[in-house]
């Protein structure tokens, strides 16, 4: 409980620059309860950070949907696959020749 309030107070004292770091970090890893609470309070009264949070979340969602489209972008063509496998064997052959 003490650490929770300590985290809240610490985060509340942070300027907007650090708040944006936390807002971005929140998309990659969970914050501690105290940090999350402090960040949420800051966003309540800071319109710019609120806008920043909204926009980076939108960007993340757009990037995610671009990634989902990517899934249906097709398979490795058979001729390319064959060439790559042939390239692996050729590369191995070249290296073994160099070695011996």
């Amino acid at each position: 409980m003490i650490s929770f309030f300590r985290d809240v107070l610490r985060v509340l004292r942070l300027p907007c620059r650090e708040q944006t770091h936390l807002l971005s970090r929140q998309l990659d890893a969970p914050l501690s309860r105290g940090e999350a609470c402090g960040s949420r309070i800051h966003v309540l009264y800071c319109r710019s950070c609120r806008t920043f949070r909204k926009q980076i979340r939108l960007l993340r969602d757009l990037a995610g949907s671009a990634g989902r489209e990517l899934q249906s972008a097709g398979e490795l063509p058979e001729d390319v696959r064959r060439r790559i496998v042939k390239g692996i064997q050729a590369n191995r052959g070249r290296d073994t020749t160099q070695e011996s």
Partner: peptide, 18 residues
């Protein structure tokens, strides 16, 4: 290596193509 191409070739292809 041949197995990587077989199993992960599609994912790598989509990633590289994109």
């Amino acid at each position: 290596a041949e197995r990587w191409v077989r199993e992960h070739g599609d994912v790598l292809w989509r990633f590289a193509m994109a």
